[in-house]
Structure formats: C-alpha cells, structure tokens
C-alpha cells in the first residue's frame, strides 16, 4: 500500500453566495466516511485561512518571525487528506469523487515510504 496526500486548493476569500457551503460540508463528510469505510483513510487536516499563518525562518543566526503564508497567491491549500491505497489510480479515484462534491482542484502527491 502507498500513501498519498490529497491537497485541496481553494481561492482566497469567502466563497461566492451561490455556493451552498453546508451542503458541500455534509457531502465532504460523507466522502470522508466512505474513505474510512474502505479502510483507506489515514488523516484529514482542515486549515484556517492563510492570513492566520506565521512563517519562522533563520536569517544570520537570528530567528525571524513574519505574519502571513510562506507563498502569497490567489489560491491556498484549504485542507488535505492522506489516503492509503494500492496505487495512483486508486488515489485519483478518491480525488475525483471529492472534486465532484467540492468543485475544487486537488493535488495528488505520493508520500515517501517510511519503513
């Protein structure tokens, strides 16, 4: 089995009023339960807005702390789920199901094997 991180990319700011957020959240929850029932769910993390992020870095031996995300962009990672499946096609299947619910692009990326 192989682990993949499914990261959801969403536009900055609040979703347009036409989006029924509650309906989508319920369906996403059902999706997550489906992954769990298949025995392929490892972890889900939902993130606060990128404005809440803080970056820490080392500059000339001095710890520098700055407000905001590491990369400023028009989209940010809204959350991620780690699945454990047989191969890329199986991971892509979960991503496709998610996209049909949320309508947001998903990056599927393999985790290095830890053993």
């Amino acid at each position: 089995m192989k682990q993949y991180m499914l990261s959801v990319y969403q536009p900055d700011g609040a979703p347009p009023p036409s989006v029924d957020l509650e309906k989508i959240m319920n369906e996403v929850e059902a999706w997550r339960q489906e992954v769990k029932d298949a025995g392929e769910w490892v972890f889900t993390g939902r993130l606060h807005a990128p404005g809440t992020a803080t970056v820490v870095r080392l500059r000339d031996d001095e710890m520098l702390i700055t407000d905001g995300p590491f990369i400023e962009g028009k989209e940010h990672i809204g959350g991620f789920t780690i699945v454990q499946v047989a191969d890329l096609d199986a991971a892509l299947d979960w991503a496709e199901k998610f996209i049909r619910i949320a309508g947001l692009p998903v990056e599927v990326r393999p985790l290095l094997d830890e053993d």
Binding site: A86, D87, L88, D89, V108, P110
Partner: peptide, 14 residues
Amino acid sequence: RDARIPYRIPKDAD
C-alpha cells in the same frame, strides 16, 4: 515509480 502509476489495464469505467 514514485507515484506508483499502476501497471495494469484500466478498469472498465476508466
């Protein structure tokens, strides 16, 4: 290799 792209004939739906 790293993303484990499968070595098989896709399922009917795909």
